Simulated scan of single mutants.
Amino acid sequence: MDKVLPLPRLSPHVADKLWWLPRGILLGLLAFAIFGPLTNLLLWTVAEKWYFPHTLPLEYGFGSWQRVFSPRGNAVDSLTNSVVIAALTVCVALALAIPAGYALARLRLPLRGLILLAFLIPQAFPNLPVYVNVARAFYELGLNGTVPGVVLVHVTHGLVYAVWIATAAFSAVDAELEQAARSMGAGPFRAFFDITLPLAMPGLMASAIFVFLESLDEFTASYFVGAPDVNLLPLLLYTAGAGGNYQVASITALLLLIPSIGFMLVVERFLKADVLARVGH
């Protein structure tokens, strides 16, 4: 009988090198999926002439930036409205979330889990049919096409982040610290404002950032409730993209992307492991 020759074995050194090959391919595909669209976005912001089949723009320049930020470009007005509405949304959402989050964290409320799930209702249903009916109701109330109407609908959409993270932030604060302040003669409000609120402030700041970004990027509610009287950046992005003006659309998308990346880096510093562990509990 013929002898079966054993298969050659790779040396440990060669095997270690080949082990990094699938990792390198996977990381390369992941980097392409993330940075490929971003690179294309940046190229469109400075492309003056770019058409198929050319891989790169034929001409570069900042003419599109001048058109976007010209008085007729509506970018400055849309950016101002977006920031103001997002800031107002944060103020209203935190004004509701701080007492709600403290009550959910400290009090033994019946059906506490159902109360937390109730804040997910705006996220659970498709946005389009919901906001069509909201726009109809707001039109009858005189809120359609107004800043208060847009702020109100943004608050209902972002309140889940505010309440859930606020509840987790207050739950992460040791209740014995507040009780110690009460035993030293401090009243309930002073113990809350001097002890509990400062310790929960990092989580509350993180919830404020989430609500701000949610309001800044919200399109469906802004379109049905605010358009055409309230100009916002997502509406400008949609109009430019639907009209085939990819330069203006890319510049507008970049204006929305920069604060999102910056605030996400801040959130990473604010949200600690003890707070994240209590989200939803």
Rank of each mutant, 00 (worst) to 15 (best):
A100P: 00
E48F: 06
A137Y: 10
S82D: 04
L128T: 11
A86P: 05
P53F: 07
I98L: 06
V68R: 03
L111R: 13
P110Y: 09
F138S: 01
C91N: 07
F62R: 06
Y139D: 15
C91T: 14
G101Y: 01
L107A: 14
L43V: 05
P57V: 04
V132E: 04
L120I: 11
E48R: 11
V90S: 04
W44I: 02
G101I: 01
Y51S: 12
I98H: 00
A118F: 12
P53W: 07
V134L: 12
E48W: 05
Y51T: 12
G113F: 10
L120H: 04
V90Y: 00
P57F: 02
A103C: 11
L56D: 06
N74P: 09
A118T: 10
A137T: 12
P110L: 09
A124P: 01
T45Q: 00
V83F: 08
R106V: 12
W65Y: 08
R108N: 14
A87T: 13
A93K: 01
Q66P: 03
P71Y: 09
L104C: 06
L116N: 05
R72M: 11
V90D: 01
G61H: 07
I85V: 14
V90W: 02
A137I: 12
L141D: 08
A124D: 03
V130Y: 04
L117Q: 13
H54M: 07
V130C: 05
L107R: 15
Y139N: 15
A97F: 00
S64T: 09
A118P: 04
V76Q: 14
L96F: 02
I115W: 04
V132A: 13
F138N: 01
P99T: 09
A95K: 08
